[in-house]
Design a binder for these strands. Sequence first.
DNA 1: CCACGACTATGACAGTCGTCATAGTACGGC
DNA 2: GCCGTACTATGACGACTGTCATAGTCGTGG
Lengths: 208, 208
Amino acid sequence: MAVSERDGRDERGERGPRERMVFSAAQLIRRGGVAAAGMRDVAAHASAPRGSLQHYFPGGKEQLVNEAVDWAGRYAGDRVGRFLAAMPEPSPSGLFAAMAQQWIDEYETAGFAGGCPVAAAMVDCAESAESTRSAAAAAFDRWAGSVAEALRGMGVPPERAASLATLMISALEGAILIARSERDVRALTTVVRELAPLLDGSAAPPPA
Amino acid sequence: MAVSERDGRDERGERGPRERMVFSAAQLIRRGGVAAAGMRDVAAHASAPRGSLQHYFPGGKEQLVNEAVDWAGRYAGDRVGRFLAAMPEPSPSGLFAAMAQQWIDEYETAGFAGGCPVAAAMVDCAESAESTRSAAAAAFDRWAGSVAEALRGMGVPPERAASLATLMISALEGAILIARSERDVRALTTVVRELAPLLDGSAAPPPA
DNA sequence: CCACGACTATGACAGTCGTCATAGTACGGC
DNA sequence: GCCGTACTATGACGACTGTCATAGTCGTGG
């Protein structure tokens, strides 16, 4: 779910204030967590008027956070499709490498400031806000669904595709955490390398 | 790093107020993140006097958080040794299953309230507090070191042991996130099952 | 021209946070 | 008994936070 500042625009290349605020919320959340993403900060980052927050998000911060998580889940899911389209000959390991590469690129060019906004929202709100927890679950589910669909398209048996998708996303999320803590992409390159043979051997029936 | 309320005691089965506060900080951080773990809450949770906080932790909250992260890293590393000792015939997949099982047990008996304190501290403080980021890196490193050492003891080639340790911890951390969001241990059981053949095939030289 | 809806502006509110200052207690050695 | 040290107690402070109330500005349709 690495996201450059230019992503998320609509077909006219512009975004309305409401969309910008959701996007900015996701950006700030993924940097310092939900608590560090103040409502005033979100408005400022989005170059949106502070007064619009209560207008567009009458549900308050919880609604804003939930929409940011939802946006991130949709974005990650859509990205899978684009990765797939960009691969000359799709393979499970190639897809996973592309997913990780997006993070490697961000970390190498923009520094290690950000993590996954869904993970950040989970950590901060899982217990306090039930709606945010379920939004995170939906985001992961959407993401995993896209990955599993892609895997099935590569000949992976349907019952294993979902499992492998979970494994891929788990490993990626964990590697993001480690990479950020070490300020080094090593963890990301490592999981890609180590998981590759397992993923590419997955078109065969499940082992044992 | 799932931790029951009874862990972390010293040889006399008791803990001093200082240790209790570090332990309580870790407990609260892993539930709702650093921001949700107020200093007053920590003191209350540890049944320790509020006035002791500034006495034992003159570095303020940042020091307390860092020590909590450090404690968690040491705890996770020590756990690996105990898992190893409890296994009749050690195997990489068996070790990973034991690590995940600790989380499964916690989630099934105590609910999905908590995650990994190191991950939580990372998400909230990686950018704001450099010292906390490096404490998290040290915690992951210590944990991975224990795992890698265990793997080498099972015949895994040294150069692969470190990589597999990173993969195991990554997958576990990610699965924790997903399991907590879904309020279901499915993600944990899935990564254990899917990773098992890869881990147990790792005593052989690296593939290709 | 006026009214109406959508949107913006801004100051205030109550609450919480981490931190600090100050004072107080307990207990050891001398 | 006294002093110094370790620890505890507590109220206050300033800096936030999310939320609300109120008023203002548009543009558009009648």
